[in-house]
Every structure is written in C-alpha cells, then in structure tokens.
Simulated assay, not measured.
Amino acid sequence: MKFTAYAALLTGAILTTPAMAQVNLTAETASPGGSVHLAPSHLVEIAGTQGIANIQLADGQTLTNSLQNVAEGKTDIASAPHILPFLMQRGVGPYGELGGEKGAELASNLRSIYPYILGNFMLFAYDSKGIGGWDDLEGKKIFNGPPRGGALTNARAMIQITAGLKEGEGYEGIQSNWGQATTVIGGGGPDAIVLPEVFPSGRTSTLSAAGKMTAWSLPIDVFESDAMQKYIKAPGSAPIIMPVAEAAAALGDQFTVVSEDDTFRGFATVGGDVVHKDMDEELVYNLVSAYIGSLDALKAKAPFGNTVAFDNPMLGMCGANPMVYHNGAVRAWEEAGFEIDDCAKEKM
C-alpha cells in the first residue's frame, strides 16, 4: 500500500511533501549548520517530493552511534566521517568495546551512497583569550568536539601531532554535543577551539559576531612532517591548502588568519551518507539518482555548497578506507556520467 507523505521535521522547519512516497525510512545526522546535515536533509526533501520515500531525519546525533545503528540494521541512513568505518572494522577507538571480530562484522554491513567534506580542521580562538597559536596551548582549556566521535578523535590527534600535547596531560579538553557547541564556546569557557569547519561556517559566523577571532594555519614544518602527512592521508582525512586571503574572506571580517606565508594549511574530514548493504538496490538507485539530479539545488542551499565536494564520488574512497559504494549508488553515479573506480565497488 502507499503511504501519504508526511511533513518532515527539519530543525523546526516543516517541509510538506505532496507526492506519494512508497517507503518509510529513518536517518540520523549531526546538528544543522554544515554539509553533514545539509546533504541528508536535502535527500529527505527530494525523496518525499519525488515520491521515492518518506525519510524521518533525526539530527543532533553522535555519528559514532549513528553509524553503528546502520550497521546493526536499526537505522536506514546515517552520516559518517570515513574514519569511523575504519575504526569500527578494527574494533578500536570509539568502537573498542566491540573488539576486532565484532567490529569487522558490523563494518562489512556498511555501504556509501554519496560523499562530502564535513569540515576543515583549524585552531581558532577569541582574541580576548590572548592565545598565541599552536605553541601556546599547554595548560589551556580547548574545546575539541562532541563527547565521542570522529571529530574528537581527529582534534585530539591534530593537537598531539602539532603541539605535542595529550588531552588530560598537556591541556584540558572540553566537549559537548554539536547542538550545544556554539553556546559552550560563546560562553567563554574554552581558551581555544579545534574543530572542523566548512568555509564559510554558520558556527564561526555566529561566534565571531560576539568578538574578534583568530585562526591559525598548521605550521609548515608540521604540515610537511611524516606524522602529519601520514595522518591526513588516512581514511577520513584529506589535505587542505588554500590562499590565506581565501580563507580569511570565507571566515569573515571578524577573523584574522595567521600563517607563516600566504597559504593556509590544514586537513579536512571527509565522509558521506551510508546505508546497510541489504537495502534494496532499486531503492538506493532511485534515492541517489534523485540526489545527483538535484546537486545544483543542493549547492545553492548554503554559502559553502560549492566547497564541500558534493559532486566528487571518489572523495576519500579506496586506499585504507574499507567503505565501498552500494551497487545501487554505483549505478546511479555512473549513469549520471561520473566515474567510480573499481576499488570503490563491491567485489562481485
């Protein structure tokens, strides 16, 4: 039987969908304000209006848990940095309680459907805090993400590689869920922040409206070091190099961007939305085809729409990343004229 499309609740805004949708699905993502929320919320809209599926989207979630929910068949779609399937497969980090065998079993259930850049990691702080940069973090309070997840894992690693400091020893880490992050940071508790941000970011715009801020590029010697190069080539990461002027323009007039030269260096968190391997192939094909067919509309929905690689299906795929595309997604991307390398496809 058919189900009348219901109004999908998206962060307080109601999108009514007049079309008749065939399937009811659930999805989980992070809080609004970035690509990780924009992509699935866009999918909710087009899937409903095109009569493909009703998707109930829960935002403000911890993506570590969301990914496991998909792997266990509890949720249909989830947003996830690529580092999370990598860690799950090995039963380490936030998935340490699973162990290697169970982690590998669950990770084998996951399939990609489309990619995006979640954010560019950077150090930034209110000028009033008097922070001097990466070499001035010892003993400070640093906001570095949600209580669990890929963002926290990456931020801790970035601070350790760049500043040589471990949380709980060289500095005090402050965490909160994404929905409370702006309030916690704006409240003045942290001395500095290390987070992934899209350029431009709604969070940085809101925070800088309360006072001037400075963002620091990775030092050249750190960026070029073996440790950092190895890390930014790992699953879930990619190097980011852009002119300082471009970064400053994206962050806004309240920001000063500091670098040793005219180049901003950092690394990006990459990921995408995933489904269970057993999701119906025709359903996945229809969802992804509708998504690809509306990429221009998706990009136009946010100032960062053209900077997060919505239209690069090979973003972060292959190499040590255990994720491959669902067969239905492969068919949709290839029929739309995009190339999917064999290493990103299921083994037949």
Rank of each mutant, 00 (worst) to 15 (best):
L57E: 07
K102N: 11
N312Q: 12
E260N: 14
P85E: 06
Q61Y: 14
S128G: 03
D253K: 14
I292G: 04
L63S: 03
D253H: 09
M20G: 13
E169G: 10
F199E: 09
T206K: 15
C318Q: 08
E260Q: 15
L123W: 02
K129N: 07
N312V: 12
M213N: 03
H326V: 05
G12N: 12
Y116K: 03
E281N: 08
P303R: 06
G164A: 09
G130W: 09
V330T: 04
F124Y: 11
V198Q: 15
H276P: 00
F338N: 05
L84H: 09
E335C: 01
S112T: 06
I46R: 13
A247G: 06
S237D: 04
G173M: 00
E224T: 14
D280N: 11
T26E: 08
V258N: 07
T162R: 03
P18L: 08
T263Q: 05
Y95G: 07
P115L: 02
T182R: 13
W216M: 06
I232E: 08
R90V: 01
N65L: 14
I232S: 02
V257T: 09
I159K: 08
G34P: 00
G272W: 12
T182K: 12
M314C: 08
T183A: 09
I185F: 03
D296K: 14
P235I: 01
I113F: 11
D342K: 15
H42R: 09
N286V: 00
E167I: 00
N286K: 14
A215F: 05
A302M: 03
M20F: 13
I174K: 11
E281D: 11
L87P: 02
A155I: 02
N312P: 00
I117Q: 12
K230W: 10
D342E: 15
P32Q: 10
E97G: 07
K345M: 08
K129H: 07
K129D: 03
S289L: 04
S41G: 01
D127L: 02
G305A: 03
D278P: 10
S79F: 08
V244R: 10
S259R: 05
L207Y: 14
E334D: 08
T16D: 10
D262V: 04
N54R: 07
A21S: 15
G305K: 06
P115I: 01
G187M: 03
L87N: 10
N24W: 03
L298T: 11
T26Y: 13
G96V: 06
A268I: 02
A234K: 04
D280P: 00
I193V: 15
K230V: 02
A234R: 06
E334V: 07
V274P: 09
F86Y: 15
A107S: 07
T4N: 15
R90D: 05
W216Q: 07
V270D: 13
T17R: 11
E334Y: 12
F264G: 01
H37F: 14
Y116E: 02
D311S: 09
A344G: 12
T206F: 13
E334C: 06
A320R: 12
G164N: 10
S205A: 15
N154R: 09
P190C: 06
S79L: 01
G328Q: 06
M20C: 08
N321K: 08
M317P: 09
T269P: 00
T214C: 01
A21Q: 12
L15R: 14
A78S: 14
L137N: 02
